[in-house]
C-alpha cells in the first residue's frame, strides 16, 4: 500500500502542476483528496492491514495528503496572484489626467503686503493700531503740526465732507489719537495701516484711494540712529538680507530732522537700471524724528520724550515687490490679476 500511496503522491503533484486554472485545480483536489478521492480509497483498504502496518501506512497517507494539499495551496496562490494582476491591469488609469481641483482663493496683494509688514513690526515690539477713515481736521492736520493755511496742506488736496471732517489724507491722525490716549507716558510703539484718500485723478501711478502704513516710536532718549537700526532690520526682513538702506534729508511738517529712506534696487542690485532711474536706489518711505511740536500738541513733554515716525505706501511696496506697473490693477479686481497672488 505504501507503494500505491507513493504513486498517488507523484500522480497528484503532477496533476497539480498540470492544472491550468482554479477549476482544474479543484478537480485535482476532489480527485485525490475528496471524500471519494483516491487517498480516501486507499485508507478504506487499511482494515486489511496488520496492526503493526497500520500506523506506518496511516502516517504515509497523511504525508501524501499534506504534500498534495500544500501543492494545491501554493498553486492556488499563484492563480490568485495572476488573477489580481490581471484585475489591476484592467484598473489602470491615465495618471496624467488632471486631478480633481481643490478650490483655492487668494489674498489681495495689498492685504498680503500689510499683513507681512505688520508681522515684521510685531516682531520688533510694535502693536497694530487703527482709526477712522473719516477724520476730524483736528487730528488729520492740526495735531500733526499742520495748522490751517499751512502751505503743506497744499500738498494733499482732500475730500472734505463738512467743514471739520474729511476723508483722512494719511494715517497720521491715528498717531495723534494714540499719543493723546497715552496721556504723556511712553513708550508708544505702533503701526497704523489703513486706507487714505486724496484728490488725485486716477492713472497708472495715482489713485484717489490708497493704503498707507505709518508707524511711531516714542520713548525716552530715542535717537535717529535707532530709526536707522529699525529700518535696516525691517528692510532686510522684507526685501532681503542683501539689501542696504540709505537716508536722505527731506521734509515733513511732523518730523525734524526728516529723511527719505532708500533701499538698494532689487533689479540691478545697486548697479543702476531703468527701474531705479540708474541711481541704484529706490525710495521706499518717509521718516524722521517726531517734531517736538507734535509731541507737545499731543501731551508729551519734548524735553523728556523723543521718537521717530515713518510712513510708507502699501501700493508702492506691492508694486516694487511684485513688479506691478499700474496702480489701478489693485482696485479693478481682475481675477487674472488676483489669481497671481494665490501662493502668498
Amino acid at each position: 500500500m505504501i507503494e500505491r500511496l507513493q504513486e498517488l503522491e507523484a500522480e497528484g503533484l503532477a496533476a497539480v502542476r498540470a492544472s491550468e486554472n482554479k477549476k482544474s485545480l479543484e478537480q485535482v483536489r476532489v480527485q485525490f483528496l475528496g471524500k471519494k478521492g483516491a487517498i480516501t480509497e486507499v485508507l478504506r483498504g487499511m482494515g486489511q492491514l496488520s496492526k503493526e502496518e497500520r500506523p506506518t501506512v496511516g502516517q504515509k497517507a497523511n504525508e501524501v495528503r499534506e504534500s498534495i494539499q500544500t501543492a494545491i495551496a501554493e498553486k492556488t496562490r499563484v492563480f490568485e496572484e495572476e488573477e489580481l494582476e490581471q484585475r489591476l491591469e484592467k484598473e489602470e488609469i491615465d495618471v496624467t489626467l488632471p486631478g480633481r481641483p481643490v478650490q483655492q482663493g487668494s489674498t489681495h496683494p495689498l492685504t498680503a503686503v500689510v499683513e507681512e509688514i505688520e508681522d515684521i513690526f510685531i516682531g520688533l515690539g510694535f502693536s497694530i493700531t487703527e482709526g477712522p477713515e473719516v477724520e476730524l481736521d483736528y487730528f488729520n492736520f492740526e495735531m500733526i503740526n499742520l495748522p490751517p493755511n499751512h502751505p503743506a496742506r497744499d500738498m494733499q488736496d482732500s475730500f472734505y465732507i463738512s467743514e471739520d471732517t474729511l476723508l483722512r489724507t494719511q494715517t497720521s491722525p491715528v498717531q495723534a489719537r494714540t499719543l493723546q490716549k497715552h496721556q504723556g507716558k511712553g513708550p508708544v510703539r505702533i503701526i497704523c495701516p489703513g486706507k487714505v484718500y486724496r484728490r488725485d485723478e486716477d492713472d497708472a501711478t495715482h489713485s484717489h484711494q490708497f493704503m498707507q502704513i505709518e508707524g511711531l516710536y516714542v520713548d525716552q532718549n530715542v535717537r535717529m540712529s535707532d530709526l536707522k537700526g529699525i529700518f535696516d532690520t525691517f528692510v532686510k526682513q522684507y526685501f532681503g538680507e542683501d539689501r542696504e538702506i540709505r537716508l536722505r534729508p527731506s521734509f515733513f511738517p511732523f518730523t525734524e530732522p526728516s529723511a527719505e529712506i532708500d533701499v538698494t534696487c532689487g533689479i540691478c542690485a545697486g548697479e543702476g537700471c531703468r527701474i531705479c532711474k540708474f541711481s541704484g536706489w529706490i525710495e521706499v518711505l518717509g521718516s524722521g524724528m517726531v517734531h517736538p511740536r507734535v509731541l507737545e500738541l499731543n501731551g508729551f513733554d519734548p524735553e523728556v520724550y523723543s521718537g521717530f515716525a515713518f510712513g510708507m505706501g502699501v501700493e508702492r511696496f506691492a508694486m516694487l515687490k511684485y513688479g506691478i506697473d499700474d496702480i489701478r490693477h489693485f482696485y479693478t479686481n481682475d481675477t487674472r490679476f488676483l489669481s497671481q497672488f494665490q501662493h502668498l
Binding site: S225, K228, T233
Partner: peptide
C-alpha cells in the same frame, strides 16, 4: 549716523 537699536524697555507686540 550710526545704526543702533532702541535701548528702552522691550515689550511684545501683538
Amino acid at each position: 549716523i550710526p545704526t543702533t537699536l532702541p535701548t528702552g524697555a522691550r515689550s511684545a507686540g501683538a
